[in-house]
C-alpha cells in the first residue's frame, strides 16, 4: 500500500508477457507438425499423441487468452525483453552460440583434442574480454590433453576422433 507521501505510488512496471509465449508457440507449431505426421497411421500410433497434443493446444490457447486479457487490462505488455535481458550480454551470448555451433561442426573432422582446445581457448578469451591470456591458454591445453588421456587413452571412450587421435593412436 502507498503511504501518505505518495511513496511507491508510481506506476508498477508492466509484466513482459510476450517472452512467455515464445516456448508455447514453438510447442504449438511442433504439435501441429506432429499431427500432420500421424494422420494416416494406425490408431495405436495416434492415440497417445492426439490425447496429449490436444491438451497441450488447449493449455497454450488458455495462456494466450490469459496474456491477451492481461495486456488489454494494462497489466502486461507483448515485450520479449526478458528473453534477451541483460542486453549488454547479447553479443557475447550470440558469439558463444556461434562458437559452440562451430565446435560441433568441426569436431567430426578435427576430433576431440584439437577442437576442444580451440573452442575452450576462444570461448574463454571471449568471455574474459581478452584478459588472463596465459592462464586461459594453459587451462585450455591442460583440459583438452587431460581429456584425451582420461577419456580416449584410459577409458577408450567413443569420443570424436580426428588427426591428433589417429596420429597418437600408435603411441598410446
Amino acid at each position: 500500500m502507498s503511504d501518505e507521501n505518495g511513496q511507491n505510488s508510481g506506476k508498477p512496471e508492466k509484466h513482459s508477457a510476450g517472452a512467455e509465449l515464445v516456448l508455447p508457440i514453438a510447442g504449438l507449431i511442433f504439435t501441429i507438425y506432429y499431427f500432420t505426421t500421424i494422420i494416416d497411421v494406425p490408431w495405436t500410433a495416434q492415440v497417445s499423441a492426439f490425447f496429449v497434443g490436444t491438451i497441450l493446444i488447449g493449455l497454450i490457447i488458455a495462456l494466450i487468452v490469459r496474456t491477451t486479457l492481461a495486456v488489454r487490462r494494462g497489466d502486461s505488455s507483448w515485450s520479449v525483453a526478458p528473453l534477451i535481458a541483460p542486453k549488454s550480454y547479447v553479443p557475447k551470448r550470440l558469439a558463444l552460440l556461434g562458437l559452440t555451433l562451430s565446435y560441433v561442426f568441426f569436431i567430426e573432422w578435427g576430433g576431440f583434442t584439437i577442437t576442444t582446445f580451440l573452442f575452450l581457448l576462444c570461448a574463454m578469451l571471449l568471455l574474459s574480454g581478452g584478459k588472463n591470456k596465459g592462464l586461459i591458454l594453459s587451462l585450455s591445453l591442460a583440459l583438452s590433453v587431460g581429456g584425451y588421456f582420461l577419456f580416449i587413452v584410459a577409458f577408450n571412450t567413443r569420443f570424436p576422433r580426428g588427426p591428433v587421435e589417429t596420429m597418437l593412436h600408435g603411441v598410446f
Binding site: 516456448l23 494406425p42 500410433a45 497417445s48 499423441a49
Partner: peptide, 20 residues
C-alpha cells in the same frame, strides 16, 4: 506436456511408424 510431445517423437512401439 511439451516435454511429453517431444517424448513421443520416434517410431511407435507397435507398427514402428515414424512420428514427428
Amino acid at each position: 506436456f511439451f516435454g511429453l510431445m517431444i517424448g513421443y517423437i520416434g517410431a511407435d512401439v507397435v507398427y514402428e511408424t515414424p512420428r514427428g
